[in-house]
Design a protein around this nucleic acid. Structure first.
Length: 486
DNA sequence: ATGTAC
């Protein structure tokens, strides 16, 4: 048997790119890491492997807890963690979703090409920076109003449609059509609502960004045709989440689990795995609050897309419709969801947790919108601001291997603290501009250092593993033109 | 990720 020695833990090779931590001690199932040996080298010395093993201690976890190819250590669960718990006898874990509930990515298409924007990058990046609020703290696209927050939490993208910020096609091209019907605004604390009220339509900070990109490669012509993507086309990527509102929801429920289920918490190897038993009142409340925060995040991305459309219409002196600025798809990176999966030949209702992982449903699955049902859902995976991104399609094997999931990014190589020691913001910014003609404009220099291309793994390697495994297949690759961030 | 603290 081939093994990989990782600082005290031994991974057993199941097949190419599939490594197993065998079941031992309190593990309910084995854990699996999906990675090449090159990617394993990046995580062998940190807490990633301990964390994914810890996840298997949670009650009702099914088949395997999984770490995606871009995985790295996180809070309780690793980032890049996928775990499915039985919806009746299992549990639901805020730590398995993450603080930034429905952090996610959408791609907006255009009919422009790189030629149309070459030489005008700075004009465009300045206009986008002016139109889209960035950075920590408050300030959104729409004025704060408590009734608006309530409606957004309840209705998600349907609110945006009613208010004239969306067209019906935008809803069709969101996971869950941009609305989680299980949302329960009454389960969201007033404090969370207050934090969200003046952040409706704001990018935030950290790894969140808005990037204009050009399509540089098409790998699967038939799928790219279905998605409306071709070489040299200009597209826009929007990456952000639920801001302070989602963060507050996560904090509130972690605290409540500590207060209300202390014995259960004590039985787990890591307190940060905090989970509420399925069927408990607290589990239902968290699920309702999380779904509401998910709705909020969709509206957040929608309003940023709305601003983007207006900016392009202004800069190119036409309408966004004439520029073909349709939403390709909006994917969530941090969510849990009740889904039906086949486990050992039987259909089961599961809470699938994807924390830093993307749903990657293949052709035929009913949740995939009709426009993409014959080819599989689009999966949008951002790399770093110097590397560009990928569009994949949900792979035929994803349901068997990962509960229909794949990676969500390149994955960090180092902490933000270390990144700031290692990189200088001005050097990074001028390097990108002079070497790659990538124009970056940020609210804070610290963010540029924290998000320097060198702090990320090789996104090409992450995608290679996803494609080889058949969980997410390469469709197209993009390269940055200009980027705004917090 | 985040008004970076219980």
């Amino acid at each position: 048997m081939t093994t990989f020695d990782a600082d005290g833990r031994t991974l057993e090779r199941v097949r190419e790119h599939v490594w197993e931590l065998p079941q031992e001690d309190g593990m309910n199932v084995p854990a699996r890491v999906l990675a090449s040996e090159e990617l394993l080298e990046h995580i062998k010395d940190d807490d990633t492997l301990d964390q994914i093993a810890n996840v298997t201690h949670l009650p009702g976890v099914v088949t395997n807890a999984l770490c995606m190819p871009d995985g790295h250590q996180g809070y309780g669960f690793p980032v890049g963690g996928v775990a499915a718990m039985d919806a009746e006898n299992g549990c639901i874990s805020p730590g398995g979703v993450g603080f930034d509930i429905n952090c996610g990515v959408r791609m907006v298409k255009t009919t422009l090409t790189y030629e149309d924007v070459a030489g005008r990058e700075e004009e465009l990046v300045d206009a986008l920076f002016d139109a889209v609020p960035t950075g920590l703290g408050g300030g959104g696209v729409v004025d704060s109003s408590h009734s608006a927050v309530e409606e957004i939490l309840e209705d998600g993208m349907e609110w945006a449609l009613r208010e004239g910020y969306a067209v019906p096609d935008d809803l069709e091209h969101c996971e869950d059509e941009g609305r989680r019907p299980d949302a329960d605004p009454s389960a969201v604390s007033q404090k969370a609502k207050d934090r969200g009220a003046n952040q409706i339509g704001s990018l935030g900070s950290g790894n969140h960004f808005l990037e204009v990109q050009r399509v540089t490669d098409v790998f699967r012509d038939d799928v790219a045709d279905s998605y409306g993507l071709e070489e040299d086309q200009l597209v826009v990527l929007i990456h952000c989440g639920s801001r302070g509102l989602g963060h507050q929801v996560c904090s509130d429920y972690l605290r409540r689990i500590e207060d209300e289920h202390p014995d259960f918490l004590d039985s787990l190897p890591d307190k940060n795995l905090a989970a509420a038993p399925a069927g408990s009142a607290l589990a239902d409340e968290y699920y309702g609050a999380m779904c509401a925060a998910i709705n909020f995040a969709w509206v957040n991305r929608q309003l940023i897309m709305h601003q983007t459309r207006e900016v392009f219409a202004d800069v190119f002196d036409t309408s966004w419709e004439a520029l073909g600025m349709e939403l390709l798809y909006d994917v969530a990176h941090n969510i849990a969801k009740k889904e039906t999966h086949t486990v050992d030949g039987a259909e089961r209702e599961l809470y699938v947790h994807r924390k830093g992982a993307t749903r990657a449903f293949p052709a035929g699955r009913e949740e995939v919108p009709p426009a993409y049902r014959d080819v599989g859902q689009p999966v949008i995976i951002p790399g770093s601001m110097g590397a560009g991104s990928y569009v994949l399609r949900g792979g035929a094997d994803s349901l068997d291997v990962t509960f229909g999931s794949t990676a969500h990014g390149a994955g960090r190589l180092m902490s933000r603290t270390r990144a700031k020691q290692q990189f200088d913001a001005d050097d990074v910014q001028t390097g990108l501009e002079e070497h790659d003609r990538i124009y970056v404009k940020a609210q804070s220099g610290e963010t540029i250092a924290e998000e320097a291309p060198g702090v990320y793994k090789d996104v090409d390697e992450v995608i290679r593993v996803s494609d080889d495994l058949g969980i997410g297949d390469k469709v197209a690759r993009t390269f940055p033109v200009c980027n705004i961030k917090g």
